[in-house]
Design a protein around this nucleic acid. Structure first.
Lengths: 140, 140
DNA sequence: GTGGGTGCAAAGCCTTTGCATTCCC
DNA sequence: GGGAATGCAAAGGCTTTGCACCCAC
């Protein structure tokens, strides 16, 4: 599911395809995990400035429709990414803030086993969140 | 390392032992991962109200001395916990917000292996963060 | 034309900072 | 007494909300 697919989906659901909606989707789908302030800056740079209220409402809209997901990387801003990526984790550079996706199947086995074990103790797990922190190749 | 040990440590480092310092340490050490607003509420309830500036400065102080750690949970506020707990992960209840610690060694092997593998790709990992989301025993 | 989308201003929440005052050692 | 700790007010960053205006269909 790329940006065009997402736009088709919106059209089929009778949602409007405004310029800002297209731009926002494009940034989130191609830019990896991005925050609202990130998107605002990018749009401003690309000469398509949006009001922050509009952007936050747009994000809520895309979340509700299941086109994007929230990613909680640090505590003070929320990041967003495409909802159609394969299960993955994140590498966060503590120096420059750069975020990379990390796809690794090898952990899923142990994680599932653990989740089942905890389930038997009364806690029902239905999701997990795994991030790695360190220095990216440019910063070390 | 309990609260009294931490207080002794502070004393040995010639740091002042104010009432608020004791109360704050006590709440963080015994209350599991708590946020600054949580601590403010608790202190108010216990009839030891503190100004928020004081608390935030106290938290920075305790972080700098290595007595407490930040915990990145799925929320928009930062949580803090004792820095002397054994390596563990967190179970976060999506209904009531209750947070439990989960100690499990079985993941460390696979995680270390993965971290080494990524290291060879140029990203230097020095920390990770693993949380599980679901429903606690009271909520399901 | 109509309802969804947008901009603007204001406000809410978490956190930080400057400054004068207070208190621990 | 001296320096650290505290309270207060103000401000900064992210996010939300109310209201009037505008644009996609």
């Amino acid at each position: 599911m790329n940006v065009d697919d997402a736009l088709s989906l919106l059209k089929s659901r009778k949602k409007r395809l405004t310029r800002m909606r297209k731009h926002t989707l494009d940034i989130i789908y191609t830019g990896g995990p991005v925050s609202a302030p990130d998107i605002l800056k990018t749009l401003k740079m690309k000469k398509h400035p949006v009001n922050k209220s509009t952007l936050y409402r747009e994000i809520k809209f895309l979340l509700k429709l299941g086109l994007i997901n929230e990613v909680q990387l640090d505590t003070y801003v929320t990041h967003y990414e495409s909802a159609f990526l394969t299960h993955h984790h994140h590498l966060v550079c503590k120096n420059c803030g750069n975020i990379k996706e990390l796809i690794c199947d090898e952990l899923e086995g142990p994680l599932e086993k653990l989740e089942k074990r905890v389930r038997t103790k009364g806690f029902l797990i239905n999701d997990h969140n795994l991030e790695f922190f360190g220095l990216c190749s440019s910063c070390n």
